[in-house]
Design a protein around this nucleic acid. Structure first.
Length: 1067
RNA sequence: GGGCCAAUAGCUCAGUCAGGUUGAGCGCUCGGCUGAUAACCGGGAGGUCUCCGGUUCAAAUCCGGAUUGGCCCA
């Protein structure tokens, strides 16, 4: 690529990005960049694996873009960064999608299809989804190792999970146990709590009388799940609550009912009793130990009847609601189960994994539980146990997140990692990681870890990593000491009875379920379950490194230096990694966490299919391009706050990039014409002017600040700093000032210094923007550096501030000067004197020495920018004649001094106008207004000047600190009018040159016909200036030229222009 | 139901920790500039700081409560 080639007039993201993609391919940009840092210090970044279903949405895009930005930045800082992407490919979501595709309804269909066939289908589906995602990520310009992602379905990764699990087992933290779980009866597997979704459903609401065994009367309970009464084991009361026995009468018959005292009226009304009498009052504690007969004893002969069943116990989940007595089935509900365990009661669960009653349910065997509700209600009624029954009671019901089937609570055998045994260690290990923001770690995360129960890692499914536990075929004791846990493929090959090759063996269920182990005469078979997918990703830090298959890199790199995910991962990946890392290795597997938010729609609502407010990244790219989309995403804070999507802001980013593009293309024609070569100029020795030195100093400051922001994981602020430098400092100021020097024909040291300065600024700016907008950075870098630079901007070092150029004092001075200029422009406008017309003088009243010094040192710049003949500086303490003064109050001092009157005093001060800026004169003015004397001090007051009519004055400030006032003297003189009119003519001739589409170098002849003799004379005085500016060879009659009538400040003039060459040709 | 986070101009956000007459960019509008020109410069309008209470001479800011939205947990 040769240098300073002409470029598009307009920043065109799409064409540019397509070209850059091709260019990257052509020069192997990604590989070269990695190679370039191969000897650098290692940095172990770990990608949180997205789940391979669906395509990349805005949240995923934000996440990957953040990762890409930090990886690119770290590479520029010299690190050899691990950038292996990962994909989470196992699990129920994929199984259900494949089931749908194959038209399956339940597990039996899968069994018929064949486990291995089903697993193959899942694998193929997951791979297809992965390809789609990967294409999306590449198209965002994310540079990761796409040729070699880690996949949770590969044997070496599955082995990493086995290895970790075996370590956990060695620490004695694995156990089989019964737990009350959410079961999806269709998927026939446990569902994690957070995988349960809720919706409102109508359910039965029944009051049931449990007949007491050793005394008259019944306990009254209420439930919305009649089918769980089959498994009733005890009734719970609140030990501290008051209960009553009432004799209730209906249809002439009286019966004794026991309910909470507070519930009597409601229960009896519900049961349509006509009358009642309280005959007993007793505390809940007194009822403990009462026995009752199971209301469905006849239909369920094998109902819970072991020692302790069928009795009343206390439980803390009881409230004085409904009846104050709670039917409890430890075989179903979670609280019931836990209380049952405490009481050492039997766990009776007559329901299979498919939600169908087993033989233990007697007459109901073979029926789906919820379908049996009506029959059970009928049986209760027939047995005289039903006090009341209603349908359609609205409650929140959990359903399976994948297939929407209503869940049932069951107690089943599950495998656990008993993280509650190492809770203190987990909490300690939290301290070893640094979070951004840290408050998320100390509040949200810590609370979650403190409350976390044991981790149920088993799922009764197919598409997952098989749990590597083998138990004896004959009766297993339940002790882990009597089970075998396998940690690696090699160990598997050594121990199993069958002949397998550890290099090639697939570890999925279809293969390993057939493998048996025989040791000491006992044969062991693998337990059927697979791991919860959260266990898969929990081992990502070593899975990324293909450990334990290879251990060198693990020894060198582990634990991870950085992970970046959204806040939902506090209970997800941040937690699962902490749990697994601590249980297996005693350490948290990551050092730093950057926790970002979610991508919401423009109203701050979640993007969802049902609302129809999803913005696809593809659409954003189509509308604005990749770099603008990335800039928008990266301009959002990456720490905890959710992002509100905004098309406007994305469009704004495109505009900002267009400004960068304009800044870049502006000097190209001049540099090209002059054959500028940056290598020939040593900027430090070049004849730089103050403004060059200023912009170079600003560049150093920007670099310093950006680096600090990156260190704090605030890339949004770094980007903001850079863009405002490009827009405010370079485009709106430096380029404006430096233009005239570039127009210089012939060689000039000043022009060369300007070239070299702008070149340096651009070269480093594109390096600074490279992590954010990699495409446009590449394009500009390539054009600027040609063969002299790296093959890609992404190989550049991160620009470090150069002390030689860093001059904060100069920056401060120019900041003041720019404030003066801005105020001066404002004053000019108020005086209705356009910039083309010179003014005789500008007067700057500086409030302090520093400001005065700044104005003095930037005198040349200011007079030029304000087009003033002279600049007069009023030193601090001095005042300019003909000014009066107004006062502004400092409320922080007025408040404490005057209390309730502070507001009135302030108003009086604001209204005052005095001849001299002293407290005494002000006090007098305030007294006039208020009618009472007040004591003011210097500190309470700030005086501002008021200008006479013939002069316009505007105060100037830097960041809100007022520093002084600029006065524009707009009085006219002949000399000024002469130049003013001349410049009006110049501007119009220039426009006409443009109308004619003349070449920059083209010489012209100009004919001026001005209606006003005085003005015509004034203009003639500046004929030389006009000729020079518009490249006119002569003034005189123009025959066939471009002719136009103008009105300038009320004066009619006719101007004609023709090219000299054209005129000669026609002669 | 509980925990954490957010709410400030039409839009995106700063200001909240250390209370003192609310700021920026964009958009809108009026004007200027015109060899970067779909660029650039200046002016202006636009806010009950979500609401209700409290503390204080003074609250966007501190405290309590509510509403709405987000994540997580039950």
């Amino acid at each position: 690529m040769s240098r300073f080639e002409p470029v598009e007039d307009q920043y065109e993201p799409h064409d540019l990005e397509d070209e850059v993609f091709e260019y990257w391919d052509a020069v192997d940009a990604y590989e070269q960049t990695k190679q370039h840092r191969a000897d650098g210090e290692t940095y172990f970044f770990v990608d949180g694996p997205p789940y391979t279903s669906g395509s990349a949405h805005m949240g995923t895009t934000w996440n990957k873009t953040l990762k890409d930005c930090y990886i690119r930045y770290l590479r520029m800082q010299g690190y050899d960064v691990t950038d292996r992407p990962g994909y989470d490919m196992h699990g129920l979501p994929i199984e259900t999608k494949v089931e749908e595709k194959l038209g399956f309804e339940n597990k039996k269909d899968i069994e018929e299809f064949g486990e291995q066939n089903f697993i193959d289908e899942c694998k193929q589906f997951a791979e297809e989804q992965l390809d789609g995602l990967q294409e999306d990520f590449k198209s965002f310009g994310v540079w990761m190792d796409w040729d070699d992602p880690y996949k949770t379905v590969r044997p070496e990764y599955m082995e990493a999970a086995w290895w970790g699990f075996e370590k956990v087992h060695e620490r004695g933290l694995v156990e089989q146990g019964k737990r009350s779980i959410n079961q999806c009866p269709r998927c026939e597997t446990a569902i994690a709590n957070n995988e349960v979704e809720y919706h409102q459903v109508g359910k039965p609401s029944i009051y049931v009388k449990f007949p007491l065994a050793e005394r008259d009367g019944s306990l009254v309970i209420w439930t919305t799940t009649p089918w769980t009464i089959v498994a009733n084991t005890f009734v719970a009361v609140d030990g501290d609550l008051d209960y009553v026995g009432v004799d209730a009468t209906k249809d002439g018959e009286t019966e004794r009912l026991y309910v909470a005292k507070a519930c009597v009226e409601d229960v009896l009304k519900t049961g349509r009793y006509e009358d009642y009498e309280v005959v007993e009052e007793l505390g809940g504690e007194e009822m403990v130990g009462w026995t009752y007969d199971h209301p469905l004893a006849e239909q369920v002969p094998d109902h819970a009847q072991a020692e302790g069943s069928g009795q009343v116990y206390t439980a803390d989940y009881v409230e004085a609601d409904r009846t104050g007595l709670v039917h409890s089935a430890p075989g179903h509900g979670e609280e019931d189960f836990e209380r049952g365990q405490e009481l050492d009661l039997e766990i009776f669960c007559p329901v299979g994994n498919d939600g169908v009653y087993t033989d233990a349910a007697g007459e109901y065997a073979g029926e789906f539980v919820r379908d049996a509700n009506d029959e059970i209600i009928g049986d209760l009624d027939a047995g005289g146990h039903l006090l009341s029954s209603e349908q359609g009671h609205s409650v929140r019901e959990g359903q399976c997140w994948r297939c929407d089937t209503d869940i049932v609570r069951l107690v089943t055998d599950q495998w656990f990692i008993t993280v509650t045994d190492i809770k203190d260690e987990l909490l300690d290990n939290i301290e070893d990681s640094e979070w951004f923001p840290q408050s998320a770690r100390d509040n949200r995360f810590r609370d979650f870890v403190a409350d976390s129960p044991d981790w149920n890692v088993s799922r009764q499914r197919y598409w997952g990593i098989p749990i590597p536990i083998w138990t004896p075929d004959d009766e297993w004791s339940g002790e882990m000491a009597d089970a075998i846990v396998v940690g690696t493929r090699e160990e598997l090959a050594e121990r199993v009875d069958q002949d397998i090759d550890p290099e090639t063996v697939d570890l999925h269920k279809g293969t390993v379920d057939d493998l048996t182990i025989t040791e000491d005469g006992t044969t062991y078979t693998r337990v059927g379950d697979v791991f919860d997918v959260w266990l898969d990703s929990s081992v990502a830090t070593w899975g990324t490194l293909d450990f334990p298959e290879h251990d060198e890199r693990f020894d060198e790199l582990w634990p991870a230096d950085l992970i970046i995910e959204a806040h939902d991962q506090t209970r997800g990946w941040f937690w699962s990694q902490l749990g697994m890392g601590t249980a297996a290795l005693g350490e948290v597997p990551y050092d730093q966490v950057l926790m970002h938010g979610w991508a919401l729609d423009s109203d701050g609502r979640k993007m969802s299919k049902s609302i129809g407010n999803i913005v696809e990244p593809g659409e954003a790219i189509e509308r604005h391009g990749r770099d603008p989309m990335r800039l928008f995403l990266l301009s959002q804070t990456p720490q905890e706050d959710d992002m509100k999507f905004s098309w406007e802001e994305m469009a704004e980013m495109q505009r900002r990039l267009n400004i960068l593009w304009n800044v870049f293309r502006f000097p190209l024609p001049y540099m090209r014409m002059d054959e500028f070569d940056p290598a020939d100029v040593d900027l430090e020795d070049a004849e730089t002017e103050l403004v060059d030195e200023w912009v170079l100093s600003r560049l150093q400051s920007v670099e310093e600040t950006m680096t600090e922001h990156f260190a704090d994981f605030e890339q949004d602020k770094a980007l903001d700093e850079l863009l405002s430098f490009v827009v405010e400092d370079v485009s709106r100021f430096y380029v404006q000032v430096v233009r005239e020097r570039m127009w210089d024909e012939g060689d000039s040291a000043s022009k060369e210094a300007a070239y070299a300065t702008l070149y340096r600024v651009l070269e480093e700016t594109v390096a600074l923007i490279a992590p954010f907008a990699p495409f446009v950075a590449e394009e500009i870098y390539g054009n600027l550096t040609g063969e002299a630079g790296h093959d890609t901007v992404h190989m550049c070092d991160w620009p470090e501030p150069d002390e030689f150029w860093h001059d904060p004092d100069l920056e401060g001075e120019v900041e003041v000067a720019r404030a003066v200029e801005e105020a001066g422009s404002n004053a000019r406008q108020q005086a209705e004197r356009s910039l083309r017309w010179p003014i005789t003088r500008v007067v700057v009243a500086a409030d302090d020495d520093e400001t005065a010094a700044a104005v003095e040192s930037q005198r040349a710049l200011l007079t030029e920018r304000l087009n003033a003949r002279d600049l007069e500086l009023i030193e601090p303490g001095e005042s300019w004649g003909e000014l009066s003064y107004a006062a502004e109050a400092d409320m922080s001092l007025l408040g404490p001094e005057f209390g309730d009157d502070a507001g009135r005093v302030m108003n009086a001060m604001n209204e005052a106008s005095v001849d001299e800026p002293t407290v005494e004169t002000l006090e007098a003015a305030v007294e006039d207004t208020l009618g009472e004397a007040v004591d003011l001090t210097e500190e309470m007051v700030e005086f501002v000047t008021q200008t006479p009519d013939d002069v316009t004055g505007v105060a100037f400030d830097v960041d809100g600190d007022e520093l002084g006032v600029v006065y524009i003297d707009a009085g006219l003189t002949e000399d000024i009018e002469s130049e003013g009119y001349a410049r009006e003519v110049i501007r119009r001739v220039q426009e006409m040159r443009k109308d004619l589409d003349l070449d920059l170098e083209e010489r012209i002849r100009v004919d001026l016909d001005i209606d006003d003799d005085r003005v015509a004379d004034l203009v003639r005085d500046h004929e030389a200036l006009i000729a020079d500016e518009v490249r006119a060879d002569e003034f005189g009659p123009v025959e066939d030229g471009h002719r136009k009538e103008w009105e300038v400040e009320g004066v009619e003039m006719e101007i004609a222009v023709e090219a000299v060459a054209a005129a000669e040709a026609s002669d």
